[in-house]
Computed example of a mutant assay.
Amino acid sequence: MSNRKQINDQITVSGQPSESEILALPSEGFRAVVNFRTSGEDDQPIDPDQERKMVESAGMKYVHVPVSMDTISHDTVDQFRQQLEALPKPVFAHCKSGKRAGAMTMMHVAVENDMSGVETLAKAEQMGFECDVPELKDLVKSYVDQRSDASTVQNGNASN
């Protein structure tokens, strides 16, 4: 498993796990898996439907939120956040390299903790997430700024 990072005590993100790594997740305490890979992606050793069967046979909940740079949007993040709230914790989230999983989960954590978009990007970088896709950086910043209370205070838009 590549690029494994624990976001907090409820969420860990990673690159694509192998079949044996998926089956070992319950012994590590994980209770749910979120897969951000789209069906038919390059270098996809496990199809999302196969992964669902593996995860569920191991006694965990499974959610598939297919995300690509062409489909990611504020609505996609909102839908993921709603699904995440309903999952038993801790959650193991992944994509091919961990970048999409990291971005999606960092946006959730940032809004929950009233961070600004700039703070979120700085925290992500501090945690070792390298975002070399300008469109993804812009999406993270705009999403968090639109949904977080901290950004309205920092931008002087708070009502007195």
Rank of each mutant, 00 (worst) to 15 (best):
S2T: 05
K5H: 13
I7C: 04
I7M: 02
N8R: 03
N8E: 00
N8C: 00
D9L: 01
I11A: 03
T12Q: 06
V13G: 12
G15Y: 03
P17L: 04
S20D: 14
S20R: 15
S20N: 13
E21G: 12
I22Q: 08
L23T: 12
A24E: 15
L25T: 03
P26L: 04
P26K: 05
S27D: 15
S27Y: 11
E28L: 15
G29H: 04
F30G: 01
F30M: 04
A32L: 11
V34T: 13
V34E: 06
V34C: 12
N35D: 13
N35K: 07
N35H: 05
F36K: 00
R37F: 04
R37K: 13
T38P: 05
G40A: 02
E41L: 02
E41R: 12
Q44H: 07
D47C: 12
D47R: 05
P48E: 02
P48L: 02
K53D: 14
M54H: 05
V55Y: 06
S57P: 07
S57N: 13
G59V: 03
M60C: 09
K61Y: 11
K61V: 07
V63P: 07
H64G: 10
H64Q: 12
H64E: 09
V65G: 10
V65T: 14
S68P: 07
D70M: 13
T71D: 08
T71Y: 07
I72R: 08
I72N: 08
S73D: 10
S73A: 10
D78G: 11
D78K: 11
F80M: 08
R81Q: 15
R81V: 11
L84H: 14
L87H: 03
P90D: 08
V91L: 08
V91T: 04
C95A: 10
S97E: 01
G98F: 00
A101F: 01
M104F: 12
M104H: 08
T105P: 08
T105G: 11
T105K: 09
M106Y: 13
H108Y: 10
A110E: 00
E112N: 15
D114Y: 02
M115T: 01
M115Q: 06
S116M: 04
G117Q: 00
G117W: 00
V118T: 12
V118N: 11
V118K: 12
T120S: 14
T120R: 01
A122D: 07
Q126W: 00
Q126T: 02
M127I: 05
M127D: 09
E130F: 10
E135G: 08
K137D: 09
D138L: 15
L139Q: 10
V140H: 08
V140F: 07
K141I: 14
S142V: 04
V144H: 00
V144C: 11
D145I: 01
D145S: 08
D145V: 02
D145F: 01
D145P: 10
D149A: 12
D149Q: 05
A150N: 13
S151H: 01
T152G: 10
V153A: 10
V153M: 09
Q154C: 03
A158W: 04
S159A: 14
N160H: 05
N160R: 15
